[in-house]
Every structure is written in structure tokens, then in C-alpha cells.
Simulated assay, not measured.
Amino acid sequence: MHDSSERRLRWLVQLTLLGTVLTAVVMLVGAWTRLVDAGLGCPDWPGCYGQLLVPDSELATLRHPDVPLEPFKAWVEMAHRYIASLLGIVVLGVVALGWPLRQCRHYPWRVSLTLLGVILLQGAFGAFTVTLQLWPQVVTLHLLGGLSVLLLFFWLHLRLRRVLAGPKGERQRGNAWWVVAAVLLVLQLALGGWVSSNYAGIACQGFPTCNGQWWPEMDISEGFHLTQTVGPNYLHGQLHADARSAVQFVHRVGALLLGIGLLALWWRYRQWQGVARPLMIVVGLYALQVALGVANVWLWLPLWLALLHTAGAIALAMGFVWAWWHWRHQALSANTTTNYSRYSDVVA
């Protein structure tokens, strides 16, 4: 590897780490924006009342006389947009720095291009979130898009570190154990976004029961009606109580299924060197996330605890990808070592 290419790779390793951290910050600021009801603090996009900075009340009234300016909420929303724009610049920097390396063997150029495509799509979802007035489908997709950017940055960072260190060994191919766990995790994250976008966080009072019942009154068809009307303002939600209870209850069932899936995955690989420990950390993060979810219900969704629950979801997703990375690149040698040890025991 040439010195210039190695320097470029080192810069890319640092830049993708920065992008990973910055994406997590953007997601937490986005969650804070939603929790303080500032998602429509600016009624237009990309500016705020037609300005790049939050204007005064007089100018805001001239621009949107039907939407009174609330300065705090407007600044919260614009802070989220400013940080998200900075993240877009980081993505462009990753693509630009990687351009001369795009034909080098093992360089993850396709991952870089995928990251660029997802961040552009994420910007569109950010615009639709405002223009469609917090339509739950778009809000949920916006959350999943943010997680996609986060995990792509993290995966790219891991790939670049491996390229810099030099390729070693083979890669393990996917199997049903990891696929099932990954699908359960994605579904649960989507359910969490649906709970948030429909303001169903405390629709079920109490835990483990929901509103004092193990099987509460629910309207599942309405709660998961994915063709809701475009047009109404969805701030604070439009679903009735039984529909919100259904959303929250299904989210709890999803958490249970995810827990079973993660425990099964850990049990399957509990004796694999280099894989068991990352999976144990994932199980620990899952347990912490469940505890945060229960605490949010018991304490009526305080702001700081709701933000911790979002941070827990971010940590769980990253932990799972990190464990998967270890399995892909260490499982073959670990399995070989384990099998050899068992063979030695038999011979002895």
C-alpha cells in the first residue's frame, strides 16, 4: 500500500468514526425535538419561515400567518437541521476521500455509495416529516433511515480498519440464527418508531399488565392502519385510545420475541471464542433497554428517561452489528479451535 493511500485510509477511519458519533447525536437531538413537540416548530423546509435562521415574530407572521412562531421550538428544530446538514457534509467527505481508492482491492466503495444514497433519502424524509405534518409513516421511516445511516457509518468504519490492518482469513457467511435475530431487531425498532410517531408511549399504563389487564381492549386494525390520511396535523397523534393501546401492547410482545431471539443466538454461540462475549454484551444492552422501557411506563415518560430509551435503542443496534462483525471474521477460527479442543479431549 502506498503511503498516500495509507494516510487517506487513516483519515477515512477517523472520519467514519466521527460520522458514527455525529449520527447518534443527530438521532438523540431528533428524539429531543419530538419529545418537546418541536417537530413542527418551523412549518416549512429547509428554512424556518423562509429564513436560514429563526426570524422574529413579525417576519414569521408575514410568512405564515396561520402558524404562530414559538421561538424555543423553532430553534430546537433548526438545531436538528443544522447538525443533520453537518452530517451530510461528513458523508460527502467520506465519498470524496474514498474516490481515489474506489478500485483498490477490498476497499468498501459500495458501502460508501450506499451511505451517500441513504443520507440523501434521509434528507427527503426530513422534508416530508415537516410538509406532511408528522405523518406517522414518514416519521417512522425517518427514524429507521437514521439508524441505517448510523449502522452504515459504523460498518464502514469497521471495514476500513480491517483494510488498513490488512485482510486476514475468510468471512463467515450468513445463517438462519443471525437472520432471524436481525429481523426481530429491525421489527422491534420499527415498532418503537411507530409507538413514538403515534404518541403511544404510555397508552398502556402499568407493567407487566396493560391498563390493569393481561389482554387489554385493543383496536389492532386501526393501530396498524398504514394508509392513514395525509393532510391532518399528526402532532400528539390521531389514534383513539384502544388503537394506541394496541400499538404499545404489540411493541411489548415484540420486545419479548426479540429477547428470546437474542438469548437463543447467545446460547448457540456461547462457547465460540471471540463471539460469546460480544453477544453477552448485546443481551445486557437488551436487558437495560427493557428496564428503561418499563421505567418510562411507570414514571409517565419523563423527557430524560425517554431520551435514554432512544440511546438504548441506538446502543443495542450498534452492539448487534458489532457482534455480527466479530462472528463474520472470527467465527471460523474459533469454531476450528473449539472442534480441535474437543477432538483432543476425546483422544486423551
Rank of each mutant, 00 (worst) to 15 (best):
Q289R: 09
Q289S: 10
V290D: 06
A291L: 15
L292Y: 15
G293L: 09
V294E: 07
N296P: 13
V297M: 13
W298M: 08
L299Q: 15
L301C: 12
L301G: 08
P302K: 14
P302G: 13
L303Y: 14
W304D: 12
A306R: 11
A306I: 12
A306D: 10
L307K: 03
L308M: 12
L308G: 06
H309W: 13
H309G: 04
H309R: 07
T310Y: 06
T310S: 07
T310F: 07
A311P: 03
A311V: 03
I314V: 02
A315D: 00
A315F: 01
L316P: 00
L316E: 00
A317H: 01
A317F: 01
A317D: 01
M318I: 02
F320T: 00
F320Q: 00
F320E: 00
V321Y: 05
V321S: 07
V321R: 04
W322M: 04
A323S: 05
W324H: 05
W324Q: 01
W325E: 04
W325C: 02
W325I: 02
W325Y: 13
H326Q: 09
H326A: 04
W327A: 02
W327V: 01
W327L: 05
R328D: 03
H329V: 04
Q330K: 12
A331K: 11
S333V: 14
S333C: 08
A334Q: 14
N335F: 07
T336S: 11
T336D: 13
T336I: 06
T336K: 12
T336E: 11
T338E: 14
T338K: 07
N339F: 08
Y340L: 03
Y340D: 05
S341A: 08
S341R: 12
S341K: 07
S344N: 09
D345H: 07
D345W: 11
D345S: 05
D345L: 08
V346P: 06
